[in-house]
């Protein structure tokens, strides 16, 4: 069997910032050639975990094996096979795309001949070739993210750590970015990616749901959705806000997580037949026309339910 890209040790990773527990003990196993997604509420510890795996932040305690090398003891070996893309744009605004890519490759010790060949190939893959001479400051959000990814790939890492790479990027550029991720995966790269977008979470092979510094759930997207008990009901109406208010005020037993999703109000019901009956009564009384359907669980709803029901630790919430 292939060596794991990330393997746990018997000592889970821990990181505190003064009194705040950012990562309370996380062990992670990631198979090579897969996309592993980290999701969870803001402040759950996703970035801290990624920064520890990227060797830019030393854990207070614990260790993990990256392609068999200790994160703590073999930092150089780990770093050589790993590429880290931080959340903030970290390229030089007054350098061009080509200059930025070459600068970061040089830092990584990539030889001149290889730099030329690889940067040409990567810029082509990212669709950045026509803009190679443009200053980084003048790039759109989507192009900036692709430039960062190209820079991170110059030393041909096997493991990529991406911290919310598409935040603030428009839907079209987001899709393009994920097409690049799919290609990297097909090339055998391992990708660990934190994301606040649930449509992106759906595209991962494995997901870890992180809350208060711990992994509270892990599995494929389908498995994660199956962990939410109950049936998702969709109430399609012309006035979703009024409908949500009416349903909230009706305080229907066994119903939780009423939320608006476009023209729909989605509610989670323990007993869908019983809840459906009460929903009909409430909306009929209020004189609101509606259409009621049971629908498949979506990741967005699953996230909301898991975030609301996951154990919350006061200290790590801040």
């Amino acid at each position: 069997m292939d060596q794991l890209a990330i393997a746990s040790t018997d000592r889970p990773l821990v990181k505190h910032f003064r009194a705040v527990v950012a990562v309370a003990g996380i062990s992670l196993e990631v198979s090579p050639g897969t996309v592993f997604g980290l999701v969870g509420p803001d402040g759950a510890g996703k970035s801290t975990l990624i920064r520890m795996l990227a060797t830019v932040l030393a854990p207070d305690s614990g260790d993990a094996l990256i392609f068999g090398n200790s994160l703590v003891r073999d930092t150089e070996e780990v770093s050589a096979r790993m590429g880290y893309m931080p959340q903030r744009f970290s390229m030089y605004p007054d350098l061009t795309i080509t200059e930025n890519v070459n600068f970061f490759a040089r830092l990584r010790g990539v030889k001149k001949a290889e730099r030329k060949e690889r940067s040409a190939k990567l810029l082509e893959q990212m669709g950045l070739t026509p803009f190679a001479k443009r200053f980084a400051a003048r790039l759109s959000g989507g192009m900036k993210q692709k430039l960062m990814l190209a820079s991170v790939l110059m030393h041909e890492p096997d493991l990529l750590l991406l911290d919310e790479p598409t935040t603030g990027v428009d839907p079209v550029s987001r899709r393009e970015f994920w097409e690049v991720i799919a290609r990297l995966r097909a090339d055998g790269k391992t990708i660990v990616v934190a994301t606040p977008y649930m449509d992106e979470a759906e595209r991962c092979d494995q997901l870890a749901f992180i809350d208060a510094g711990r992994i509270t759930r892990q599995g494929t997207p389908a498995e994660i959705k199956a962990m939410v008990e109950g049936t998702l009901l969709s109430v399609l109406t012309t006035d979703p806000h009024e409908t949500a208010t009416v349903l909230r005020d009706a305080r229907i037993a066994g119903v939780s997580s009423g939320h608006i999703f476009g023209d729909e109000v989605r509610i989670l019901a323990k007993d869908s037949a019983l809840a459906g009956e009460r929903v009909r009564e409430a909306l009929h009384q209020a004189g609101i026309p509606y259409e009621l359907n049971a629908i498949n669980m979506d990741m967005e709803s699953a996230f909301a339910v898991l975030a609301e029901t996951a154990p919350v630790q006061e200290a790590a919430d801040a």
């Binding site: 969870g40 509420p41 803001d42 959340q87 919310e164 935040t167 603030g168 606040p196 649930m198 939320h259 608006i260 967005e300 996230f303 909301a304 975030a307 609301e308």
Partner: peptide, 8 residues
């Protein structure tokens, strides 16, 4: 960059 629940 805000999580789904906070967004809601």
């Amino acid at each position: 960059g805000v999580d789904p629940l906070a967004r809601r």
